[in-house]
Design a protein around this nucleic acid. Structure first.
Lengths: 188, 188
DNA sequence: TCCTTATTTGAACAATCATTCCAAAACTGG
DNA sequence: CCAGTTTTGGAATGATTGTTCAAATAAGGA
């Protein structure tokens, strides 16, 4: 062995995430990536293959990080509804940065199987956790019992995307908070 | 005067809309546009200027068409709540096609003033109509009186985007309907 | 019918794209 | 200090990008 790896691969991925999240895939050039990751062109291709594979890896990492943060927020509070509330509050608080998940869905829809697989994996994980939390909240009486927990979970995750989209459209923080509050109100 | 125009400019714009709406701006090439619009390259540039101006024109036309359709749906039914219901139902029914508005927001956020202007113009128009309808529904008793009509309107338009985003992510029609129903439930 | 004026068409433009080759520089383990 | 490997930047790849030039085509009005 001689020289070990000189750059942090995960840090480079994070840099890629921040480029892709606000430029999208198509509008991001290899040159932009080289500058943002602070590594040489060849290192980029050696490490990540090509632009598409780097994108997939970035989305994968972003989805994992984001899902983890969501699950952590979900665990908040004495009551289950507090966790759901914390989840939405976190989304509002972080809404100033574009969501790579939303961007990725918008740009590619379900046309790229490799991408869809990533979204579905992260989606299922969050979905299951939200469903469980909704069920608990129902037995605690803070969510109406006549609501299908699965539909409620879909509604919540869908409204998370909606809040982020509204933020990207320029809607202010106060209004985003109102969106979160009304979404919750629908489940009472 | 010599030769009249050989192609329908508005039909060409509609073709441009359908390309941009499912490829996005950056991933759409001039060649793709030429093929989709069924006009020569030069005719395209003579008529629309360049790719960006064509995009702006497409978004403008799409926004106008979509706003009009929304306003029409809003007028439905004996009660005001029926109009709101029809609005959401239409969104669910047409959700299989990508929304150029959502795509445009996702791709550019508020970074392009010319684009933001278009969105805001269409947004204000729909927003005002929804607010009015919400107020009526409140006096008819089908929407809770303690809800701020402005926030309710924002919530509704935001959920319209959410439904379209969910559809783009592959969520089925039944689930989309459930999303619409839960959104409405939040206002009761 | 000829001329004028648009429109269309296809070739050509320079620029940029993602990607690869290559050789020099940088660095660590031995 | 040397060996060996990784990183790096520049040059070059062929393909595609958005855009324009120039000639050909067509349809009024004269």
């Amino acid at each position: 062995m001689a020289r070990p790896k000189e750059f942090d691969e995960l840090a480079a991925l994070d840099a890629a995430i921040s480029v892709f999240r606000d430029k999208g895939y198509a509008a991001t050039s290899a040159t932009m990536l080289v500058e943002a990751l602070h590594i040489g062109r060849q290192s980029l291709y050696d490490t990540f293959g090509d632009k598409w594979r780097l994108y997939l890896e970035a989305v994968r990492r972003y989805a994992a990080q984001e899902t983890e943060a969501h699950l952590t927020a979900l665990k908040t509070g004495p009551q289950s509804i507090d966790g759901i509330d914390a989840l939405l509050a976190r989304v509002v608080a972080t809404a100033s940065e574009a969501c790579l998940g939303v961007g990725s869905i918008c740009e590619f829809g379900t046309s790229q199987p490799e991408l869809t697989t990533i979204h579905e994996a992260a989606g299922r994980r969050l979905h299951a956790a939200v469903i469980e939390r909704v069920r608990e909240a129902q037995s605690e009486g803070s969510i109406a019992g006549d609501i299908d927990p699965e539909q409620a979970a879909q509604f919540l995750t869908s409204n998370i995307a909606a809040i982020r989209l509204a933020a990207r459209a320029g809607v202010g923080g106060d209004s985003l908070l109102a969106l979160a509050r009304l979404a919750l109100r629908g489940l009472r």
